[in-house]
Simulated assay, not measured.
Amino acid sequence: MTPLSRLTDHELINAFIAGNVNALETLILRHKDKLYSSIHFLIKDKYLAEDIFQDVFIRIIDTMRSGRYTEEGKFLPWAMRIAHNLCVDHFRKVKRTPTIKNSEDQDIFEVLNFTEDSAEDKMIKTQSHHRVREMLDRLPEDQREVIILRHYADMSFKEIAQLTNCSINTALGRMRYGLINLRKMMVQKQIAL
């Protein structure tokens, strides 16, 4: 029997539907970092991000068990779309738009796995990450969202376009203008990363 970790997403989904709960666990472990990072970046609250992350998989399980899953071979973009929609629903409920705020809670840069650095290197990285976060905060929401999805969730422009309901060219344009705006901010503030 093939180990679950070698199965494709589609094969894991079929195994879960057939009753193998371990297949779902393998699927979650495979994609949890990208999903959680994207949610956390949009929500900016560790505990709320964890709740939404769980809600994403509850929706996924319900959809699979009811036989409504039809996204063959496209599990991650489908799951990202569910996560994105749940984040949007959250902001609609609290009647505000998502912003990236500096936080004392653990943020995405603490989740990323870096090799052990000296105290000086850690301080420099922390300052650089803080500067990047401040600059991202100043970008228009659509540009910030594309940059986050591309660089932190490692999504393709096609996936980003589907998730944000825009064309690939629009997603590319938002990325281009977002990066131009970040460069302008770096020049104006004479920031070197």
Rank of each mutant, 00 (worst) to 15 (best):
Asp9Glu: 04
Asp9Gln: 05
Asp9Ile: 02
His10Trp: 04
His10Glu: 15
Leu12Thr: 05
Leu12Tyr: 01
Phe16His: 08
Ile17Phe: 11
Ile17Trp: 04
Ala18Val: 04
Asn20Ile: 03
Asn22His: 12
Ala23Arg: 10
Ala23Pro: 08
Ala23Tyr: 02
Glu25Ile: 03
Thr26Leu: 00
His31Thr: 07
Lys32Thr: 11
Lys32Gly: 06
Lys34Met: 09
Ser37Arg: 15
Ile39Ser: 09
Phe41Arg: 14
Lys44Val: 12
Lys44Pro: 05
Asp45Pro: 11
Asp45Cys: 14
Lys46Asp: 08
Tyr47Met: 08
Ala49His: 14
Glu50Asp: 14
Asp51Lys: 10
Asp51Asn: 10
Asp51Tyr: 04
Phe53Pro: 08
Gln54Cys: 05
Gln54Asn: 09
Asp55Leu: 02
Val56His: 03
Phe57Tyr: 09
Ile58Met: 12
Thr63Tyr: 04
Thr63Asn: 11
Met64Cys: 12
Arg65Cys: 03
Arg65His: 09
Ser66Met: 00
Ser66Trp: 00
Gly67Asn: 06
Arg68Gln: 03
Arg68Met: 04
Tyr69Ala: 02
Thr70Asn: 11
Thr70Ala: 10
Glu72Leu: 02
Lys74Ser: 14
Pro77Gly: 01
Pro77Thr: 03
Ala79Val: 15
Ala79Cys: 12
Met80Glu: 10
Met80Ile: 12
Arg81Met: 08
Ile82Thr: 15
Ala83His: 13
Ala83Leu: 00
Asn85Val: 08
Asn85Pro: 06
Cys87Glu: 02
Cys87Phe: 03
His90Thr: 13
Arg92Pro: 09
Arg92Tyr: 06
Lys95Asp: 14
Lys95Tyr: 05
Arg96Thr: 15
Pro98Phe: 00
Thr99His: 13
Thr99Trp: 01
Ser103Gln: 11
Glu104Val: 04
Asp107Phe: 04
Ile108His: 07
Phe109Met: 02
Glu110Leu: 10
Val111Ile: 14
Leu112Thr: 06
Phe114Asp: 10
Thr115Gly: 13
Asp117Gly: 07
Ala119Trp: 00
